[in-house]
Design a protein around this nucleic acid. Sequence first.
DNA 1: CTGCTTGCAAATCTTTTGCATTGAA
DNA 2: TTCAATGCAAAAGATTTGCAAGCAG
Lengths: 158, 158
Amino acid sequence: MDICKTVATIYNNCYMSTNNKELFELSLRRRGFSITSQRHMVFKELIGQEPLSMRELYERLRGQVDRASLYRIISVFEKSGVVVRIPVGWKYKLELSEAFNYHHHHITCIKCNRVIPIEEDETVERLIKEVSEKHAILPFAHQLEIQGFCRACRPADS
Amino acid sequence: MDICKTVATIYNNCYMSTNNKELFELSLRRRGFSITSQRHMVFKELIGQEPLSMRELYERLRGQVDRASLYRIISVFEKSGVVVRIPVGWKYKLELSEAFNYHHHHITCIKCNRVIPIEEDETVERLIKEVSEKHAILPFAHQLEIQGFCRACRPADS
DNA sequence: CTGCTTGCAAATCTTTTGCATTGAA
DNA sequence: TTCAATGCAAAAGATTTGCAAGCAG
């Protein structure tokens, strides 16, 4: 085990020792799902991470959680409001929902593929509200994704 | 052939007879791609349709375009700016880009799954501009998706 | 205990690739 | 004529399912 892994473990334990863990367990119980060690492992793997694809998540849990179980667990997590899927290019990635990981949006750099989080913004909220009223809908969730050049990759002439 | 199919064909022909067809061909040529009958078929199948998944598009072109070719054609269309992928739930769907199908966003009803288009709005444009300036990025494209209850499915008590 | 979860294996679905043939320019 | 595009077959990758065994409540 290398130093990075160790630091990550300590980091995760810090999070897990707060009431994030209780909230996680409550979220599952509320929906009638049970708490298992695999579900804990998956949850911990998502804490403090940038959005991960199924494959990345699976790699990180190799030998600890079966692939089929992982899919089933993610499905349970979605139903419980623990994780959300965010569209990235043609695929999607997974991250903890706003309850664990304050709600935000993303900018993806089309050159270096870096994902820059945008904090939930009063502007975005207002927009959703306006649009919803105009169409007489009751908003439940929303995603905003922007693609462009990040500061570093920005062409010189702009 | 049923009446719906016939109407759809006439409808598509109307579109194709306008300069949409020229724009389509120009878009491909501009990028050095050639015009083929399969590409025409795929393009026509997308005209005036709500967003389609790969599978739906393939079904509609059964026997006319090979599956592998369809994927290659869609890839070419994306590079040429003819189609865009929009995230819908865990998957994505395809629709003609704003040049053929004015740029807009979508609201998906979480009950009946209807997709309601939102016209490109001055509010949305302003939001993208503000956020981009704040993060010093150069925006290239963006997607906004909202999920909620549509007018019809809206619970009575809200 | 009992029923929900998991792991394993296999099925299914989606997307990509290699290659010989066809067709656009 | 020449090179890009297509169809076919097969590979690769992603997701789902059936079922027996294991574990949480």
